[in-house]
Design a binder for these strands. Structure first.
Length: 386
DNA sequence: TCTGGGGTCCTAGGACCC
DNA sequence: TCTGGGGTCCTAGGACCC
């Protein structure tokens, strides 16, 4: 079986670029997008701003200090959502096998598409040009036989870079990279790897299994495979969210229960809107709270039916709240989070229900118990097993 | 080191079922 | 009645990513 051709396409400095796309007068200027809250940090900085030392996560006051001409814009998630969809639509016009990695990046299987091109590189150049001309967004592209290598490739030569990584080039192009540049290795793992003498991806690829096992546990082989340049090339086109949630940090801690309830309800109203806009309901409700002393507690509850009304959600959340209300010295509340998971589209839920009703009515072989245990047959399962 | 808000995936223990 | 293997689901927490 010959290798697939996977692209990873990543929009450069997406939030900042989105504002520049909307307002061409910002072109070539140092731009930073940030939240409006006091003492805010840079969420996304344009490359012009980065050249002057402005980095994301930097305090706004400091960014202004080192770059007084910095143009600050307020984050606008509707704008990003809109551009993100247009970006995905454009890519999908080349191949239906598109997997969104996040709001600003996609993995695409172009194995078939590139047959119409002399080289994969030509397709990459065309896409990069079209995204820039039609959406005014700069993108980086990585081309490789699997998702991991494509992702690593798109991270090189920013901005407006195109990088091909062939399997045989892993040793030359991937192994010299510092271990912290490996996708999937984060803050917590880096120091542990350094401790055992692993500083590059090549070091990881060649480390004794036993040493890695202490760090990665059951996932050791997966990381070794990635470091060796082997990884999944399967594109998952299912874009339905697995969870939706809201969280908010308060600069002024909440002390009154009434105020707390209002804040919780506000978040739930927002959640209800998102759930109803996307036509989904959820079985699991999760609630997290952080107190002034930075202690965070989270509780979740799974129902055996689906809900998306704010009243229903609020009732469950308050139930979860009372569970630890007395257990923690309630100082002020600094942070709240409400989220829904175990999500299903209303169509699917109704389909299940009708299937269940039909089975009961016509007395088909399946008992109530059996259906319950298998969590009801769903559309995707039927497709998978047929 | 974390600032923030949106997510995904994994683990480990317990309950429960066959 | 007990032991054991295989499996799923739930819950809490952690790591990571953008």
């Amino acid at each position: 079986m010959s290798a697939k051709v996977i692209f990873h396409i990543d929009i450069n400095a997406f939030f900042a670029s989105a504002h520049i796309a909307l307002d061409p007068s910002l072109q070539g200027k140092p731009v930073a997008a940030c939240h409006v809250v006091k003492g805010s940090v840079v969420t996304s900085a344009s490359y012009e701003a980065r050249k002057r030392g402005v980095k994301s996560a930097m305090l706004m006051t400091q960014a202004k200090l080192i770059c007084p001409e910095l143009i600050v814009v307020h984050v606008d998630f509707d704008l990003y959502e809109d551009l993100s969809q247009k970006f995905i639509d454009l890519i999908t016009s080349y191949s239906p096998l598109v997997e969104p990695g996040s709001v600003d990046e996609v993995y695409v299987d172009f194995t078939e598409t590139i047959k119409n091109y002399k080289r994969p590189l030509d397709l990459a150049i065309e896409i990069q040009k079209r995204v820039y001309e039609e959406l005014k967004l700069p993108v980086n592209i990585g081309i490789a036989p699997n998702k991991f290598l494509a992702k690593m490739g798109s991270d090189m030569n920013k901005p407006l870079g195109i990088t091909v990584i062939r399997k045989r080039e892993v040793e030359a192009k991937i192994w010299p990279l510092p271990i912290e540049d490996m996708f999937g290795i984060g803050r917590k793992t880096v120091p542990r790897l350094h401790k055992v003498g692993i500083f590059t991806i090549g070091d990881l690829a060649n480390a004794p299994f036993g040493v890695l096992r202490n760090i990665f546990g059951n996932r050791t082989q997966i990381y070794i495979d990635l470091a060796m340049g082997t990884g999944s090339d399967i594109i998952d086109t299912d874009t339905t969210a697995k969870s939706i949630g809201h969280s908010l940090t308060y600069s002024k801690p909440i002390h009154e229960l009434d105020e707390l309830k209002t804040e919780i309800l506000n978040q739930i109203i927002d959640l209800e809107k998102r759930a109803k806009d996307t036509n989904v309901k959820a079985k699991t409700i999760q609630f997290a709270i952080r107190f002034e002393d930075m202690i965070t507690v989270a509780r979740s509850l799974t129902l055996d039916y689906y809900i998306n009304d704010k009243e229903d959600i609020f009732e469950r959340v308050m139930g979860l709240y009372t569970e630890f209300e007395g257990k923690h010295e309630v100082s002020g509340v600094k942070f709240l989070s409400v989220s829904l998971s175990n999500i299903k589209s209303i169509d699917q839920i109704e389909e299940q229900l009708s299937l269940f009703t039909v089975n009961k009515k016509t007395n088909l072989s399946k008992s109530h118990k059996k259906i319950k245990r298998s969590d009801y047959p769903v559309k995707t399962d039927i497709v998978d097993h047929s």
